[in-house]
């Protein structure tokens, strides 16, 4: 199962990941990224990869 790893030194809370997979990523009201589902189902891999690639700050990665 893919596991999402966030580099919080890089994350600026833009929320582009949230606009791709809102049930997995959420930027809360103080601007911090929350991972709602740390190890989403294998079927979500495509979306997660899109979020990783789409992150302008390079803060996301997937570990298996």
């Amino acid at each position: 199962m893919p596991r999402i790893v966030v580099d919080y030194d890089k994350c600026t809370g833009l929320g582009i990941c949230e606009s791709i997979a809102p049930d997995v990523f959420e930027v809360d009201d103080d601007g911090s990224l929350l991972i709602l589902e740390e190890s989403p189902d294998e079927t979500r891999r495509g979306e997660l990869q899109e979020a990783v690639d789409g992150c302008p700050t390079g803060a996301l990665s997937i570990e298996d």
């Binding site: 030194d9 600026t12 809370g13 833009l14 929320g15 949230e18 930027v27 009201d29 103080d30 601007g31």
Partner: peptide, 20 residues
């Protein structure tokens, strides 16, 4: 630059999240 950039930016960035 970081670390000050990170702290200052966060003061306003929270208003620009997808939910907001």
């Amino acid at each position: 630059d970081a670390p000050r950039h990170t702290k200052l930016r966060k003061l306003v960035s929270a208003a620009f999240t997808p939910k907001r």
